[in-house]
């Protein structure tokens, strides 16, 4: 018996697409490497262990929040306008930080405050899920409204002030070291590994990506799409809750303005797609992207380039990445 399909009839088109995909991925890796090399030679102190740890620490908060966004993208697709997005994730982290800090200040202790922060994050995520899955509001708008609510609640809790926090947990997170590596970095490593497992080595992850990749196909295969979208938003909320504690640890306080992280978080999650073979959001890709953005910020700092340029460079990166991937997908 002969094979039914000997080869793709449109091989030419596919080869073209695969080549441009490859070029983009290589470009991303080479670009990253070149920038690191450039900094290594020009920025004094860039390669010192202290500075490299610093980069990882700087990237931790951004990275974990971007993982949350990555989960949402995985479960709802990267067409941010029609698919899914979580604009509330940074504001959510801010709210969780406020909950944590205010409870600590009120003397409740970590055993109450930490779970309370995590639960707050998940509740906000569940609200997003409810709006998107049950009410079928466009995710862009639903999470925008939720972002407003979360920001308002954060301001209400903290009255727009810095709420200082002191606790052994915060000290450990901020200053602790294990095997010569800071606790913050360890958290990043552990969260990354756990999420790589969930997203790429578990049944749940495979189905989540199926839902985001082609909702109809997933439904036809018997996947209950709604619960995966819910799960993605709640997962993002949980990660926001976790991040909030790291934010408090790094600043020793809950500080207004966490919502400002939204744009770098989006940039990291979108930039991450160019590091993946399939040009889709992956945990590994987002990890690299977060490190990339952290490296850029750090290198700029060392080179004395004004921090004014950071957001502009991030914006340009988003545009380049999105234009390049849409070009690769259409060619």
């Amino acid at each position: 018996m002969t094979a039914i399909a000997d080869g793709p009839p449109r091989a030419g088109a596919h080869r073209g697409r695969n080549i441009s995909k490859l070029v983009i991925r290589l470009g991303a890796f080479v670009g990253f490497a070149l920038i690191v090399i450039y900094f290594a030679f020009t920025a004094r102190g860039f390669t010192t262990p202290y500075n490299l740890t610093n980069i990882v620490e700087q990237s931790t908060i951004l990275g974990i929040l971007a993982y949350g966004m990555t989960l949402v993208f995985a479960g709802t697709g990267t067409d941010v306008q029609r698919g899914g997005i979580d604009l509330s994730i940074a504001a959510n982290a801010g709210l969780c930080a406020a909950v944590y800090a205010v409870l600590m200040r009120a003397g409740y202790g970590g055993y109450v405050a930490v779970p309370a922060a995590l639960v707050t994050g998940m509740a906000v995520g569940a609200l997003n899920g409810f709006a998107v899955v049950a009410l079928r509001i466009m995710p862009l708008l639903a999470t925008l409204a939720v972002m407003n609510i979360a920001e308002g609640l954060e301001l209400t809790l903290t009255e727009n002030t810095v709420v200082a926090v002191n606790s052994p947990l915060i000290d450990t997170l901020a200053f602790g070291r294990f095997l010569g590596i800071s606790t913050l970095s360890w958290v990043f490593v552990i969260v990354s590994l756990a999420l790589i497992w969930i997203a790429h080595y578990s049944r749940t992850g495979l189905r989540l990506y199926a839902v985001g990749g082609h909702a109809e196909a997933a439904r036809a295969a018997g996947v209950r799409n709604g619960s995966y979208v819910y799960g993605a938003y709640i997962g993002a909320g949980l990660l926001a809750g976790l991040t909030s504690i790291l934010i408090v640890a790094r600043l020793s306080s809950s500080t207004p303005g966490t919502g400002q992280m939204l744009l770098p978080v989006l940039a990291a999650a979108l930039l991450g797609t160019v590091f993946s073979r399939r040009l889709i959001p992956t945990i590994g890709g987002t990890l690299l992207a977060a490190l990339f953005i952290g490296t850029l910020a750090n290198g700029f700092q060392l080179l004395g380039i004004s921090s004014y340029w950071v957001s502009g460079v991030q914006g340009a990166l988003i545009l380049v990445v999105v234009a390049a991937t849409s070009f690769a997908k259409n060619s």
């Binding site: 067409d79 941010v80 502009g312 991030q314 914006g315 340009a316 988003i318 545009l319 999105v322």
Partner: peptide
């Protein structure tokens, strides 16, 4: 580029 991302980049 889809309008959301394009104008987001411009915002940055």
């Amino acid at each position: 580029i889809n309008p959301f991302l394009a104008t987001l980049g411009v915002l940055f």
